[in-house]
């Protein structure tokens, strides 16, 4: 083996390592962790990371509101103007694909990029 062979191998590996490290840094940014994605009538309102405690009052155009609370890695609706209050009673969510729905306000909270709880669907 020539010296050049070693340089070649090291070169290939360094190039691969650089690409791998960078691509991981880039993709980690948006898969950093679980987020609660809030949509209103189909359009996205905001994304809230589950690892940051926050209480967000979501105002709707007709004066209605939902209060989203994230704490201890779980997400729930603590208050809402809707009359049936199903979203407030709804269990807190934290696993991939879980949703909280407020039909009257057309609001959907969906968990993304979280762990799977190995459940594909749930009856409501």
């Amino acid at each position: 083996m020539k010296k050049n062979d070693f340089y070649l191998i090291i070169g290939i590996l360094i190039a691969t390592a650089i690409v791998v490290i960078f691509s991981n840094i880039i993709t980690r940014k948006d898969t950093a962790g679980a987020v609660a994605v809030v949509t209103i009538d189909g359009s996205e309102y905001g994304r809230f990371p589950l690892d940051r405690d926050v209480t967000e009052r979501i105002e709707h155009s007709d004066g209605a509101y939902n209060v989203l609370s994230i704490h201890d890695g779980i997400c729930e609706i603590t208050e809402a103007s809707c009359r049936d209050q199903i979203c407030v009673h709804h269990m807190s969510v934290q696993y991939n694909g879980q949703t909280i729905v407020c039909l009257p306000n057309k609001l959907v909270v969906t968990i993304e990029n979280s762990n799977n709880d190995d459940i594909d669907g749930a009856t409501h």
């Binding site: 691969t16 490290i21 691509s23 993709t27 799977n116």
Partner: peptide
């Protein structure tokens, strides 16, 4: 150096594996 680089690539890439 080669072995270290191989270990680095495998470790970084394996950690980034998505489970979905």
């Amino acid at each position: 150096i080669i072995l270290a680089l191989i270990a680095l690539i495998l470790a970084v890439q394996y950690r980034g594996k998505s489970d979905v």
